[in-house]
């Protein structure tokens, strides 16, 4: 049997030509459209930044961490947040992996760890937002000067709160989805169904949230 025969056979119907379950394929297309939404936000931010004289220096804006007082520790807190999200992504992959092995206990364990990671990230973000709010930053208010000491525009805070807020909302909904998955795992729904494909779909969403953070983190905190 040569390749042409197999390829045409795949598109003859009766099976998925992409060898992917319908729900999972649609999750991929949803994530692609979501990537365009986030991309539009980040490109709007980049365009505005390129069109503005001067911009606040992230290292002077994001320089504190909880219980640290007014210390000057740029990047420390946000790097902790980044690692929390990476680790929770890893535990999610491990949950999917346990799902392949039909190991209910393993899936449940790693789902719990993933949810904890998500909650830890949300806690960090809540702290950071509160801290910035008390420094006078919010939508429409920007207490931070540009890097060269000149007056900055409110675009900086507007974009920061809108984009990290939109990402935080994705993390929040991801945690909710993971909680539902955990309950379904514990009730043995997937075991009866014979496969843990649903965990893979939730996993795709969760990895996407981590993926977006890679971009948000770079665009707002590093460069």
């Amino acid at each position: 049997m040569n390749t042409t025969v197999t390829t045409t056979g795949m598109w003859k119907g009766g099976r998925s030509p992409f060898n992917v379950e319908y729900g999972k394929l649609m999750m991929w297309y949803f994530l692609m459209s979501d990537a365009f939404t986030f991309g539009a936000f980040l490109i709007a931010y980049g365009t505005t930044r390129f069109a503005t004289n001067g911009w606040p220096d992230p290292n002077t804006v994001f320089r504190t961490y909880p219980f640290g007082g007014e210390t000057h520790a740029p990047l420390v807190f946000v790097s902790i947040m980044t690692f929390i999200l990476i680790i929770s992504s890893v535990t999610m992959v491990l949950a999917v992996h346990e799902g392949h092995a039909m190991n209910k206990k393993g899936v449940a364990k790693y789902m719990v760890l993933t949810i904890l990671g998500g909650l830890a990230f949300l806690g960090c973000q809540a702290w950071e937002w509160t801290h910035l709010y008390h420094e006078g930053a919010w939508w429409g208010r920007n207490p931070f000067p540009n890097a060269d000491g000149t007056i900055s525009t409110t675009n900086f805070t507007n974009f920061f709160f809108t984009i990290t807020g939109f990402h935080g909302f994705h993390v929040f909904s991801g945690v909710i989805i993971n909680c539902i998955m955990l309950i379904m795992v514990l009730r043995g729904v997937f075991e009866r169904r014979g496969h843990y494909l649903m965990i893979e779909k939730a996993g795709l969403y969760w990895h996407f949230v981590d993926l977006v953070w890679v971009f948000v983190f770079t665009c707002f905190y590093l460069i």
Partner: peptide, 11 residues
């Protein structure tokens, strides 16, 4: 992590 590398090329 999202396993895309191991999917079919068309997908």
């Amino acid at each position: 992590f999202m396993h895309l590398k191991h999917e079919l090329r068309n997908m």
